[in-house]
Structures are given as structure tokens and as C-alpha cells.
Simulated assay, not measured.
Amino acid sequence: MLAVKSNYSAERQRVSQPQRQQNRDTSVRRSPAGLLDKLSIGAAIVLVLGVFWMLAGNAAKVNVMNHSVAQLQSQVSTVSAQDAALNTQVDELERPSRILSLALNKYHMKHANAVHISTNVKTGK
């Protein structure tokens, strides 16, 4: 029985050796393609990382621009409020009754006497 088992294992080794050589031949043949596949995968990874880096940079720029827009909108509302207050003040200062009151009371100005020019001027004829 032992002789049959050893014979069987020896036969099995002889059959498997050509298969191993075939596998080695195909693996040798596949290695350039495997190298090309590895390079392609590596290039794809680098490309994906580059795109991710670019998108992250653009997202950061968008965030900065949004912050700037928010600040500008705040400044616009502040300046609009100041403009409305100044327009109200200008309207108050331009009132004719206020100007007349200041002229008479503060600066002690008086109305000018009206000068009457007559149309009946006698000529030397």
C-alpha cells in the first residue's frame, strides 16, 4: 500500500511540474501587462488626487469669496443707513424757515429795505 501511495505522489509531481512551468511562462508573459496595469493604477491615483486637490482649493476660494461677499453686504447696509441719516440731516438744514430763523436770531441780520424805482423819470426834453 505504501508503494502505491509513493508511486501516486511521484506521478502527481511529474504531472504538476509541466503545469508549473506553464504557469511560470504565462506569469512571465503577464508581468509586463501587470507592470502596465500597476502604472495605470498609479497614474489614475495621482490623477484623482490632483483633481481632489484642485477641488479642495476651489472650495477654499469659494469659501473666502462668500466671506468677502458677506462683509460687503454688511458694509452696504451700514453705508445705506448712514446715507439715510445724512439725507434727513440735509433736508433739515435746507429748510428755508430754519435758514431765516438763524439769519435773524443768531447772526442778527435784518431785511433789506426795498428800493423802489419809479418808471416816471423825467427826461431833459
Results as ranks from 00 to 15, higher is better:
58 N>L: 09
91 D>W: 03
26 T>H: 07
82 Q>R: 13
59 A>T: 11
25 D>T: 06
1 M>H: 06
88 T>P: 00
10 A>C: 06
65 M>S: 03
3 A>N: 11
88 T>D: 01
104 L>R: 11
28 V>C: 03
120 N>F: 08
33 A>I: 15
55 L>F: 10
120 N>T: 05
23 N>T: 06
46 V>P: 04
113 N>C: 07
54 M>E: 02
5 K>V: 15
48 V>Q: 10
59 A>L: 05
101 S>T: 04
33 A>Y: 13
77 S>N: 13
101 S>P: 00
44 A>C: 08
66 N>H: 01
33 A>V: 15
54 M>N: 09
98 R>H: 08
53 W>K: 07
61 K>F: 01
31 S>H: 13
106 K>M: 03
55 L>S: 05
75 Q>H: 07
121 V>T: 12
125 K>E: 14
33 A>N: 12
60 A>R: 05
26 T>G: 01
117 I>S: 10
60 A>K: 06
88 T>Q: 03
18 P>I: 15
10 A>K: 15
20 R>V: 00
18 P>C: 04
54 M>K: 09
116 H>N: 12
49 L>W: 07
22 Q>E: 12
97 S>D: 13
63 N>C: 02
12 R>L: 13
51 V>I: 15
69 V>N: 05
74 S>H: 11
63 N>I: 02
12 R>G: 06
88 T>L: 01
14 R>A: 12
17 Q>G: 02
68 S>I: 01
51 V>P: 03
101 S>Y: 06
58 N>V: 06
76 V>K: 04
99 I>C: 00
104 L>N: 09
81 A>E: 13
28 V>A: 08
16 S>F: 08
24 R>A: 00
45 I>D: 03
120 N>V: 04
120 N>M: 10
112 A>T: 07
14 R>Y: 04
95 R>C: 00
97 S>H: 03
108 H>S: 08
120 N>K: 12
39 L>D: 12
65 M>L: 06
87 N>T: 14
7 N>R: 10
27 S>A: 15
50 G>S: 14
